[in-house]
């Protein structure tokens, strides 16, 4: 069953048209991976869904509701969380304050909090520390934790492994695997190994156009297609 549909959306940043007729169907459950080279339009796609950049044409439909004209805050309240590439951590706030800001009524659901502490033990350890003092990996954990501190239907995650140490990437993979049991994830990722092990469905975006969609298992088997669309051999 389709959770999110992008129907021929076009998004421009200033005078530059970035997305051209992008259409996607993200089904409920599991991880949908959006692949593509640098500057292909992956981040723009996530930001267009979140209403941070407004598509000039096309529609974004979430659970049957057309989100055109909705404010970003209203989109978030529909149950969509966003983990940006920059992580979007509030450095001047403590770990606890960063998380409490993401709760609906300013109180923690203790069960969820315990689950977060199990997934990311460092966050419990640095609970009262200001977020700027965390390492890059811990900041990424906080950013993801903030997305799951409340029940969400969809989490948009933009390049969560960028610049992280291999051990942290492994921890992040386990966390996403766990989260995807209950929440749909739309993941933008350049680390193909990471994406491959998590993704169920996938799409490749190139120059602002969707050039391939299908199952991750099929794509992972087709090395020629990977090389053509992602230039993996070149990199």
């Amino acid at each position: 069953m389709s959770l999110l549909s992008l129907n021929a959306i076009e998004t421009a940043i200033g005078q530059y048209a970035v997305l051209h007729q992008v259409s996607l169907e993200v089904c409920e459950g599991g991880v949908f991976v959006l692949l593509g080279r640098n500057g292909a339009g992956k981040t723009t796609t996530l930001r267009s869904i979140m209403g941070l950049w407004r598509p000039s044409a096309g529609s974004v439909v979430f659970q049957g509701q057309d989100m055109r004209g909705l404010h970003t805050a209203e989109i978030a309240r529909l149950g969509i969380a966003y983990v940006p590439e920059s992580m979007g951590i509030f450095g001047g706030l403590t770990v606890e304050e960063n998380l409490i800001l993401a709760t609906r009524n300013g109180r923690f659901d203790q069960e969820r909090l315990k689950r977060i502490w199990q997934l990311f033990p460092a966050l419990e350890r640095f609970w009262s520390k200001q977020a700027w003092s965390l390492s890059g990996g811990q900041k990424q954990m906080l950013s993801v934790a903030r997305a799951i501190i409340e029940p969400r239907k969809l989490i948009l995650v933009d390049e969560p492994t960028k610049g992280l140490a291999p051990a942290i990437v492994d921890a992040m993979m386990e966390a996403f695997r766990d989260i995807s049991q209950t929440t749909t994830i739309l993941l933008v990722e350049q680390n193909f190994e990471f994406a491959k092990s998590l993704g169920r469905d996938m799409a490749v975006i190139e120059d602002g156009r969707v050039v391939h969609t299908g199952s991750m298992a099929d794509f992972a088997r087709d090395t020629a297609l990977q090389n053509r669309l992602l230039s993996l051999s070149a990199s």
């Binding site: 941070l52 970003t72 978030a76 001047g92 706030l93 800001l101």
Partner: peptide
């Protein structure tokens, strides 16, 4: 205080 740092993220959290 969060808004002083990152307005966009505050909106993405639903405010």
């Amino acid at each position: 205080r969060a808004g002083v740092e990152d307005r966009e993220m505050v909106e993405a959290l639903g405010f």
